[in-house]
Amino acid sequence: MNVPRIRIVAEIGLTVALSAVLGLISVWQMPQGGSVSLVMLPILLLALRRGLPAGLAAGALYGVLDFILKPYFFHPVQVVLDYPLAFAACGLAGLFASAWTSAAQEEKYASGLWRAVLPGVAVGALGRYVAHVISGLVFFSSYAVEAGQAPLIYSAAYNSFVLVSAAACAILASAIMPALSRVEGGGSR
């Protein structure tokens, strides 16, 4: 069903607000010191409900807002990769929006979870992870660290909190998406 553009604008704005709020809540402290939050969850769910463009826009805007609220600036490329691009990548979950819509319309939620929600969360989170890892490499290359493969390994390990957050988002998305569809009478309105 075609959703009015003005409603998409309102949904993106509110999604960004919810992401910012969830960013303030720590679900779990990782043993090595990292913190697992659910900032990706609203972006992933919006992308799964409204498609790729809405997901990408919500992610990029959350990235901009995150930079406005908590800026860390080492290099212009790092800023683009760590903020708008990393969160816009979460919007890649929108690639599975049509699969979810058709599953939800037939009320086949279990099938929708395997065909749309879990792959969507995985692709979106992996996109964000890759953006953060590349950003780490940009940091080390721009600060002239010559340590062989160490920067890649260090950056991949440092950003592993994204993958743990993705697991938490997958658990919650699996519970929320069917509930949202049931509340709204099936599928995206």
Binding site: P4, I6, R7, V9, A10, E11, G13, L14, T15, L18, V27, W28, V36, L38, L41, P42, L45, V164, A167, A168, I171, L172, A175, I176, A179, L180, V183, E184
Partner: peptide
Amino acid sequence: GGLIRRTRAFVPVMVPLFVNLFRRAEDLA
């Protein structure tokens, strides 16, 4: 508890938050 138990504890918080988000978006639009 661990990650899974804590995450599952958030389900009753997240469902109303998301339902309200999409309802509020409709009203706002």
